[in-house]
Design a protein around this nucleic acid. Structure first.
Length: 594
RNA sequence: GGGCUCUUAGCUCAGCUGGAUAGAGCACCUCCCUUCUAAGGAGGCGGUCACAGGUUCGAAUCCUGUAGGGCUCACCA
């Protein structure tokens, strides 16, 4: 039983004994720094049941606690707040109990519980990844890891958007203007090469539009009738008809892109358990549209298009199949969801990591799946996140105003190198070791910068102002970890020596640290429930701040006696381990030195 | 126009299901390396929590309205 539960019971007992009233709940909060005590009972809510002066009630309950609960050392009452001080022995017992648990806070998956599928990344295969995708990937990966740590079995997946008119555009441009260029011949990453032709298409298309307008066409007509667009549309038809050459070109160019993506994913440190391709699942959705027509969930219009009427649910009518019978986005998403549950029967819910511009889409998708009668539809969650904007506004691939993912990662590592070189603490590290360290630090800065912000909020990224390495940053936390490693190398840690709980007095800084460590399991559950890596990041930052204050104010290796020293070294070790574990949930590595 | 969402210090962000004098980092100003890594620590400056009402013992937090920003309402994805 947790301390809070124990106290809660005793508070209820006290109220029953002294006021003859049965309380339903007791409200707690951490005691604020400026007051003595560790945990605070808020008296105000009790006033609805107990008539009286809150200070007196607090005094009465406080006395009861001191007399009846061994863990309670003393108390004080300020206004309606009963501040309770907990004995050092309690914290030391707790610490002795968890200090050798290298996975403290993590819950192993239960066999009988349903798994969760987390979808993230899901890029189009016609342009390289940019900062927006980076946020998506980091969020999805981190939430998946957090869910795992909270006790869920998790599958990571993505839907690869590999078909459609936009893909044909880059194919066509490459065919017309590419003169046989390949990643090998140019030395370009495959996704970059293909992305260039997507841009090229747009440029040439715009030229054609201008020419048509000059020749007397209206802008609207010009946009519709530009020869390049017609060719691209024709190419899509050929692709859908299975034309050999078109499919071969499609396969080749997508292959380039996948190779490029694989490299970026590796750079970012994200991974997937299973992949879905839109070209494989888009037909599937149609089957279920037919089913839904039979069961009356959908309605067919005179022109042949199929709709779902959601007006009774406060939404609009939504198209699920075009008049010509081809699939729309919604059709595919219906099919993909169903396919996934078929493939993984142990999955009981899914998380979709997709930007908040698609809030409405997912609201509709989930509702349709419910209407189709799938019971797992109630466990679908849209992990909706805010856009990453530049000071100039939105990032647009076709206009070249994007922050490229690979470049950004390289830049971060370069900054880490500059700072490290300047500080010069890496004597004895090989060039290779240094290079890896710079990447660890650079990625740490980038990932933490993005993940510490509430997913729902939009991020403004100014490429001119580089990401910080000081203060509330990834490198600051990594630095603390490295510092502790240095102590552990010198400290002769013996993790098995138990600290005598009843005969050891805790330094206030030590107690604060143990209290902070104690929060970790709850933070993981909270982060999982809220799908928020930011909660993990903020927790870690608080822990690290607490440790640095301890480190600066208390001598660890120079402690007065061996017990004291052992406690402090062990405590440092547990803090380091917690940093390592919490950072692993963010996908950030920690260095031995820096 | 309808729907969703956001607005907290000069800047970037915390603030758990309503609770004590709203907290961090950056920036700016002081101090602290003959002691375990100064990417650090101790302190200072800085706020009408967009605005106006309401709910109650108590509101940054809940409700309503106003202003400003974002997203969305496609046989695009």
């Amino acid at each position: 039983m947790s301390l809070q539960d124990t106290l809660s019971n005793y508070v209820k007992q006290a109220v029953n004994a002294d006021f003859n009233i049965n309380l339903e709940t007791v409200e707690f909060q951490a005691t604020r720094k400026e007051f003595a005590g560790d945990i605070t009972v808020v008296i105000f809510p009790m006033l609805r049941f107990i008539k009286g002066n809150p200070v007196q009630i607090g005094e009465t309950i406080g006395s009861y606690l001191v007399n009846n609960v061994t863990e309670v050392k003393s108390f004080n009452v300020v206004k309606g707040f009963l501040n309770v001080e907990i004995s050092d022995a309690y914290y030391l017992n707790f610490f002795n109990g968890i200090k050798n648990d290298s996975a403290f806070g993590f819950v192993s998956p239960k066999a009988d519980e349903k798994a969760v599928m987390v979808e993230y990344s899901s890029p189009n295969t016609n342009k390289p990844l940019h900062l927006g995708h980076v946020r998506n990937n980091l969020l999805g990966y981190s939430v998946a890891e957090i869910l795992k740590a909270s006790g869920k079995k998790v599958y990571k997946t993505q839907i690869i958007n590999d078909r459609g008119i936009h893909i044909c555009k880059s194919m066509l441009a490459w065919e017309k203007f590419g003169s046989g260029e390949t990643p090998e011949s140019t030395g370009l990453k495959g996704d970059k090469l293909v992305g260039n032709y997507y841009v090229k298409f747009d440029q040439e298309y715009k030229k054609e539009i201008q020419n048509l307008i000059a020749a007397g066409s209206t802008e609207e007509d010009a946009k519709k009738n530009a020869p390049l667009l017609l060719e691209a549309q024709n190419m899509l038809l050929k692709w859908e008809a299975g034309d050999k050459d078109t499919v071969a070109l499609w396969t080749k160019m997508n292959g380039w892109v996948y190779d490029g993506f694989a490299e970026s994913y590796k750079n970012l440190g994200v991974d997937f358990d299973t992949l879905y391709y839109e070209s494989n699942t888009y037909l599937l959705g149609k089957e279920f549209v037919a089913e839904g027509l039979k069961s009356g969930v959908f309605v067919k219009e005179e022109d042949g298009s199929v709709w779902c009427d959601l007006t009774e649910d406060g939404l609009d009518k939504k198209i699920v199949l075009r008049a010509d019978g081809t699939a729309v986005y919604m059709t595919q998403d219906i099919g993909t969801a169903i396919q996934r549950i078929k493939d993984y029967p142990d999955v009981g819910g899914m998380v979709y990591t997709v930007g908040n511009e698609q809030d409405y889409h997912f609201q509709v998708l989930f509702l349709i799946l419910k209407k189709l009668g799938f019971d797992w539809a109630k466990n679908l969650y849209h992990l909706s996140y805010g856009m990453v904007d530049l000071p100039s506004g939105k990032m647009k691939s076709r206009e070249g105003t994007v922050v490229d993912a690979d470049d950004l990662i390289d830049d971060m590592a370069a900054t880490a190198e500059e700072i490290s070189e300047e500080l010069g603490k890496l004597d004895g590290y090989s060039t290779q070791e240094k290079k890896e360290l710079y990447k660890t630090i650079g990625l740490g800065a980038l990932k933490y910068y993005i993940l510490k912000v509430d997913p729902k909020k939009r991020i403004l990224f100014d490429p001119k102002e580089s990401i910080d390495f000081q203060g509330n940053t990834g490198p600051f936390i990594q630095y603390t970890y490295a510092r502790i490693q240095s102590i552990l190398r010198k400290g002769n840690l013996n993790p098995d020596v138990a600290i005598n709980a009843t005969q050891t007095a805790l330094h206030p800084k030590e107690k604060e640290l143990i209290k902070q460590i104690q929060l970790f399991p709850e933070v993981i559950q909270n982060a999982a429930n809220n799908h928020s890596p930011a909660l993990i990041a903020n927790y870690t930052y608080d822990l690290v701040k607490e440790f640095n204050s301890f480190y600066q104010n208390v001598s660890i290796l120079g402690a007065d006696n061996d017990t004291e020293k052992m406690l402090r070294v062990q405590l440092s070790q547990v803090v380091a381990n917690t940093i390592k574990n919490s950072f692993s949930l963010l996908g950030v590595h920690v260095p031995e030195r820096m």
